[in-house]
Amino acid sequence: MLRLDDLQAGYGAVQVLHGLSLSVATGEVLCVMGRNGAGKSTMLKAIMGQVRTSAGTIDLDGTRIDPLPAHEVSRHGIGYVPQGRRLFGDLTVAENIEIGLMTRNRGAAVRERVLDLFPRLRERMGQISRTLSGGEQQMLAIARALCLEPKVLLLDEPTEGLQPSMIALIRDTVIALKGTGVATILVEQRVDAALSVADRIAFVVGGRVAETVDAAGLSPNAPEFINHVGV
């Protein structure tokens, strides 16, 4: 479904991705792990067109999307939950949702379905999103991305700084979406959270994928985690 091939990208003169390749299929959850600064977020920004690639290709269902301007990427069905959530903080919950819906011209039916996943948001539609709790803000960031009915969902450390109940809710949401055929790339720092949802785990080291392993049967103490994540 989504395939990155030999990507090189960076910021100005500083190259961050050095030939990164990976792919994720329909209904699959690919966890991406790696130390801080390894280039995980940069990889997602490259997919979204926010960081220009200098070499390599990004292919979605047979269409190259890396040459697209940033505002057209999501219209091909890629939902993005950035690190740190990046809500439109001065806008209300309803307005953030509306922007998600507008991306691919979705209407009230999609909105209701998404809000059914996060009933707490429904009670707070008029609230300025900056004033939500951390967990609610993360729900909104995910809801906003789901409003475009994505084929591919990119989640950048969605559990960062959240309490266990919220982490469980995010896990359940990812598993439910997987059941509907969404391809998910989940950047995750916690081994337990990664193992609870991942089909495969890709370890990013120094801007390329050092190793990809099947998550099934992997122990939390496996050497991959110790080598690449440093836990």
């Binding site: 940033a70 505002h71 439109f88």
Partner: peptide, 12 residues
């Protein structure tokens, strides 16, 4: 508020 995120949601 945030032009990068706006672009990520299809805003030209």
């Amino acid at each position: 508020i945030d032009r990068d995120t706006a672009r990520a949601f299809g805003i030209n």
